[in-house]
């Protein structure tokens, strides 16, 4: 067997699958952007136009995109703030406990996303458990709006993606050579200084990986705003869904999708660049 050719033979079926069912459909989406919506929906193949892009850059859609990024950013930040100390605590535990704790941390991630989201509908609704508890304790006079707003959406995203952040940061912490921190402590640095100057920078790649994943999964999310936002919180995923199904304007939906793909590529490129630079400086 030819040693140079064999890797390509191994890769060919998988790569072909990805090209046929991901690259080609995405290219199709890019190409749909230059057509018009037909009068009764679908695509009018006869008209080639730049109109969709002109519309997509209307401030209205920029606002929706910005809101999605803001909500996703907030969810990412909170997930990191919750997830880092939790991962740190797990990494500090005895090896036997580490396995158990990590197992417990990721177990919810393996249950159904819809059911996890539904649990919050049960908890947060005006006649739900949390409001009932608050009123029973006499903390609030009547039900307070917990569900069907941005708060509920951010909470839902944080809830669903925190296990992921814990996992990513835990594996970064695990790869960390403990001798660095020991050396720092031996040299007289406080625990806090050691954490801020040694541990955190050295796990930055893990943090970034977790953050990018949560951000990317959140910004394009459809289910969480749909179910926990009560239709009142519009994110770009819902906008795309609405263009395809409600407005039946496939070309415009395709344009918004293409812009979202573009945004993802920029984020990932930036992350790759930052990671490379961080490693470059570290060595």
């Amino acid at each position: 067997m030819n040693a140079n050719r064999s890797p390509w033979l191994l890769m060919a079926p998988g790569l072909l699958w990805l090209v046929a069912l991901m690259v080609v459909p995405c290219l199709l989406i890019f190409s749909l952007t230059i057509f018009e919506r037909g009068t009764y929906g679908g695509i009018d193949w006869h008209i080639i136009t730049a109109e969709n892009f002109r519309r997509a850059f209307d401030p209205l859609y920029a606002v929706i995109l910005w809101d999605s990024a803001r909500i996703a950013g907030l969810a990412t930040l909170i997930a990191l703030l919750i997830g880092y100390p939790a991962a740190y605590a797990i990494a500090k535990a005895s090896p036997r406990w580490q396995t158990v704790l990590l197992f417990l941390a990721i177990l919810p991630f393996w249950t159904n996303y819809l059911i996890r989201t539904y649990a919050w509908i049960v908890l947060l609704n005006p006649a739900g458990l949390i409001n009932g508890l608050l009123q029973w304790l006499g903390l609030t006079a009547g039900p307070i709006p917990l569900l069907y707003n941005e708060f509920a959406v951010v909470l839902g995203l944080v809830y669903n993606y925190t296990p992921f952040v814990i996992l990513a940061i835990y594996s970064a912490l695990q790869r960390l050579d403990p001798s660095y921190a020991e050396a720092s402590r031996d040299l007289g640095a406080s625990a806090a200084t050691t954490f801020w100057r040694i541990t955190l920078p050295l796990t930055a790649a893990g943090v970034a990986a977790g953050a990018v994943f949560v951000f990317v999964l959140s910004i394009g999310n459809f289910l969480t705003p749909d179910l926990l936002g009560g239709g009142k919180v519009q994110m770009v995923g819902n906008l795309i869904y609405d263009q395809f199904l409600t407005a039946r304007d496939w070309p415009f939906g395709a344009t918004l999708s293409s812009l979202l793909i573009g945004l993802m590529m920029i984020i990932l490129f930036a992350q790759a660049l930052a990671t490379r630079r961080a490693y470059g400086e570290g060595r």
Binding site: Y40, L60, L239, Q243, R248
Partner: peptide, 21 residues
């Protein structure tokens, strides 16, 4: 009734309402 070509302006208005806070 189906709005035909008016659907685009209509859809944009709905998006404006959906995006409002």
């Amino acid at each position: 009734r189906d709005l035909g070509d008016g659907a685009k302006a209509f859809a944009k208005t709905v998006s404006e309402i959906m995006a409002a806070k």
